[in-house]
């Protein structure tokens, strides 16, 4: 464990909590991509199946269970409890378009982590500030993992190509979002809209 990985995981946790509370408190999932949350649930389920096969640490097990439970809880908030507020018109991302590059680059098994909210922002041109904070922490989690891999490469002299390549791909998707976040959300009025 190093500081990058710990803060990355905590940012991931903060992102999940922000999204859950936003939906819960506002009783609305407007502006949230239900499809991406389903993909998160699928990704966590497939990635964390090793919960049943190998024990790594209490920390690892607890975090995996928390991520899994919160992913399914968020999906149920969107599709069951607050279904009427779900903006399915804007959630028009074609999952099959994601599956094609994923199949082609199947060694990048983390590819489905790419959040479709980023696509929804480009589609609707705006995002509520709370949603951008969620995306910011999600992006920070991926970015901090880059620091973690540099750390592990130097300290442990090991390197996991699949994790690093897929992690870099995921982080690249956040770059333009980070730019907009800092130039508009932090300095501006709070709402993020594209020019």
């Amino acid at each position: 464990m190093n500081i990058f990985r710990l803060s990355g995981d905590l940012c991931h946790l903060v992102a999940i909590i922000i999204l859950f509370l936003k939906i819960w408190k506002s009783k609305s999932c407007a502006g949230i991509s239900g499809k991406s949350q389903v993909l998160f649930a699928v990704v966590f389920t497939t990635r964390y199946l090793d919960l049943f096969t190998s024990f790594i640490s209490i920390y690892n097990t607890v975090m995996k269970v928390v991520y899994l439970a919160s992913a399914y809880a968020t999906v149920s908030l969107i599709y069951l409890r607050f279904r009427s507020t779900f903006d399915s018109e804007s959630d028009s991302f074609r999952v099959e378009f994601l599956l094609v590059p994923v199949a082609g680059l199947s060694f990048l098994e983390n590819y489905a982590f790419t959040p479709l909210e980023l696509f929804m922002i480009t589609k609707t041109g705006e995002a509520a500030s709370i949603t951008t904070h969620y995306l910011f922490f999600l992006g920070l989690y991926r970015a901090l993992y880059l620091g973690n891999w540099l750390w592990r490469y130097h300290v442990e002299e090991f390197f996991d190509q699949i994790a690093v390549v897929s992690g870099v791909v995921q982080t690249i998707f956040y770059c333009d979002f980070f730019y907009l976040y800092f130039t508009r959300v932090i300095r501006g009025s709070g709402k993020m809209s594209l020019p």
Partner: peptide, 10 residues
């Protein structure tokens, strides 16, 4: 450089 799997990561 040795290859490893970071199974402990989240």
């Amino acid at each position: 450089l040795q290859s490893a799997t970071y199974k402990d990561e989240l």
